[in-house]
Every structure is written in structure tokens, then in C-alpha cells.
Design a protein around this nucleic acid. Structure first.
Lengths: 210, 210
DNA sequence: TGACATTAGTCGCAACCCGCGACTAAATCA
DNA sequence: TGATTTAGTCGCGGGTTGCGACTAATGTCA
């Protein structure tokens, strides 16, 4: 049971790693724990995430099992990878045993964990246009520019502002609040909240071309 | 380790079930086996599928792990679900201990297996437009109408012929052979084979609207 | 031997979607 | 007051999609 805990920080996606025991080959590892025979998988993974984070993550989801022969600190043959998401504000205020690393500049990890992390990231990218995952990386109220930056972060490319907003509008996922955020210079931005609307007719996912 | 083995039969998707031991609550079960500590997950799942089917399936892929508290014949807390696909001709000629059931008219299954089967089916549907999965349910050479029927089967809705072929053409996944199949009445259909082409420019998935 | 039924395969239009540059709007800074 | 910065919108040109109507090739049956 391994958890990949992610949070955005500025223009980077961060992952939470813990220090491995002294005798282990790699200094850093994904948080993990072995499952006792009477525990349920998803519950224990949620607990593990909560314990390492010291808060409840906005989302926790199983990705898949790994049973290739690669090395894992548990010595066990089977690991199950979980994805957990935290919004940037919560992630930033974090003070614990574990520390954040940028996903594009990682220390060496146990080989199976390296594979799991990779798989979780691609899976996250793939689920982006099927479900409203991105919102879990943001505080409950946010500007559309913030939301766009999250999508750009996850997709790894810039998006066109007008097109992004058009798609977003078509998907009926957000609704405006009556608050505005002034960020120093520039025109203030309206704050939105996540509020998916059921809509007669084709409920299409959010598909962003560019 | 549970395997969901699927094959098309006419206008229905069939799943292969085996008879449970006498003392078990449900008469039918998904083929499953416990993993010994020194075996690798994916290899053993492939072996299990081969053994029940008596042939090599066209595709076998891990879907995800299940560790909810629901009952499973193994008594174990953790199960990993696999998807295996067989083409209709091979599936039809099958003679073994197990038997085929239509996925929309199933006998009662152990609760966790019921959930696994459900999850495998939805996962199959979702992967349809990301990878060329459908081809694994067909013999190596097939007509475009056959291919369309597979897609309709999996998506659960009718598709428009002209649009389907246009999308297919745009995705560069098939190439025509010089053989034609005469199916009794009506104009003979040209046979195609699966032959994905690398293409400069945007390698887009097959997206069928309707 | 034709007319008809049946299945395969294509064409083209109207509506919709998407990329993108250019615009307006509201704030701060000098 | 004018430059700068960030937010938000408009609209055009081109590509994609849904779909009805068409042509093509075969078997069936009077």
C-alpha cells in the first residue's frame, strides 16, 4: 500500500516523500505500509495519507496494483498504488516528518515505487478530461486563472485563455461567487466555486485541445 | 487474482465463469487463484487465463485491486482484477469446464467478484477511445461492419456508419486486404486487418461521437 | 430475366467546435 | 495621466461531426 500525495506549488507539482529507515538503500521513499489481514485496503490507505499529511486529503483514489518483480522496501511481491491530492494552500502550510519534492526533480526511489509514481502521474493526466479531478488541487474558491494554471501544470503545456474558458463554460462545472480577488496590480479576478450542474442533453467531459 | 474473460457473441458480450466448489454459496464464480509469495502478479494472471481458456487470450491487462470488505471465495482481503479478451471465433469454439454467460444476464456471484466484473466492464468502455482495444475481440481479418458492431456492443449504443468510418480512417488503424467476404445476400464486404500507422502530426485517439 | 430486398460503401451539407489573434475592462505604478 | 499588468470577451476561419441521401454489388423470387 503506497500513497502518492500531490500538491501544486507555484508552477510545479510536488510529491510528498518520507525518509526511509537507515539500512534501506534509498534515502527517500513514498509513504507505505503493509496491510494486515483484517484491514480494508481503501480505508487504511486513507488513514496512511491522513497520518503522513496531518490533514485529510481532498481526494484519495486507488490507481492499480503492482506485481512486477521490482524491488520494494516492504519485501512484499504486491503493492497497491494510491493517489492523494491536496490543495496548494494546505500543502504549503505543512510541517511534518515528510518533505515535498518537485515531480520533475526527484531523488532516487526504490524501483517499484519509481514505477508507481510514474503510473500515478500518467493516470492523473488521463483522468483529467473524464472527471473534475483538477478541482481537488485548489481551495474551495479560486480564480479561473488559477484553475487554468492547474490544468497547464498537469497537462504539461500552455492553454489558450479564451478556449479554456469556453470549454469550462460548456461543461457547467463552476459557478461564480460574488467575491473578487485583488492580487496587487492588474484587474481583480472573480472567484468561482466548483459546482457541477446536471444538464439535460449530452453530459460531455471537459476536453481541452489547446 | 481474478480474471474477467470476455468474448463477443452475436450482439452480446459474454464472460467466462467457472463452477464454484460445492460448499460455496454461489454456484458460479470468476476464475481466480491465490498468489504464492514468490510469483509475479501479471505472469500468473496470464497463466490462469490461458489455463481456463485453453488458448492464449488476445489481450490481458490488470485493471485494479479490490480491498473493500466484501466477501470473496478466497477469504483473502485483497483481490486484483484482470481483463482478458478473446475474439468471437475462438470463444465460440471453446469446450471446457467453464461456460459463457451474457454480461447482461448473469447468475449471482460472490459480492466482491460482482463489483470487479462491473469495474472491468466500465474500464473497458473508458479505454475504448484511448487505445485500439476493440480489435482484440475480432479475428485477425474482419469487415468494417463487424468492427462497428463491436464498438456498438461495448459502447451500448448505435453508431452512424459514415461517421464511424470517417473516424476510423482518420485514426489510421486499419488497412484493407484484397479479400472480400460474401455473407449470403447483399453486397460483399471488404476484409480489413489491424495495422496501426505512425503518422506525423497529431496522433489522436479514435473518438466516436455517434 | 427483371424487380425487389439486402447489405456495403460514399458524398456533401449544415451545424457545431476549436485555435487564436485582437479587442475591452479594471486595477496599480510611476 | 499614461504605462503596465492582469482579467475577461468577441468573432472569424478552418476543421470536425451528425446525418440523410445517394450509389454499388450481390441474392431472391415471381
Amino acid at each position: 500500500m503506497d500513497v502518492v500525495i500531490l500538491a501544486p506549488s507555484g508552477r510545479r507539482l510536488m510529491v510528498l516523500l518520507v525518509r526511509g529507515p537507515a539500512q534501506s538503500r534509498e534515502k527517500w521513499q513514498l509513504p507505505w505500509r503493509s496491510l494486515r489481514p483484517d484491514e480494508t485496503l481503501d480505508d487504511e490507505a486513507a488513514k496512511l495519507a491522513r497520518k503522513t499529511l496531518d490533514t485529510t486529503p481532498a481526494l484519495i483514489e486507488q490507481i492499480r496494483a503492482f506485481g512486477d518483480g521490482r524491488r520494494h522496501p516492504s519485501g512484499s511481491e504486491l503493492s497497491v498504488a494510491f493517489l492523494a491530492l491536496v490543495d496548494g494552500d494546505t500543502g504549503a502550510g505543512f510541517e511534518g516528518d515528510a518533505t515535498w519534492f518537485a515531480t520533475d526533480d526527484l531523488p532516487s526511489l526504490p524501483p517499484r515505487q519509481r514505477g508507481m509514481l510514474e503510473a500515478v502521474l500518467t493516470s492523473l493526466r488521463m483522468r483529467l478530461d473524464h472527471g473534475p479531478i483538477a478541482f481537488h488541487l485548489l481551495p474551495p474558491t479560486f480564480t479561473l486563472t488559477q484553475l487554468q494554471e492547474i490544468y497547464e501544470l498537469l497537462l504539461g503545456r500552455r492553454l489558450h485563455k479564451a478556449s479554456f474558458r469556453r470549454s469550462l463554460h460548456a461543461a457547467w462545472l463552476v459557478e461564480p461567487t460574488d467575491e473578487w480577488r485583488s492580487e496587487g496590480r492588474g484587474r481583480p479576478a472573480q472567484l468561482f466555486r466548483y459546482a457541477p450542474k446536471k444538464r439535460r442533453g449530452g453530459r460531455r467531459g471537459v476536453r481541452f485541445g489547446n
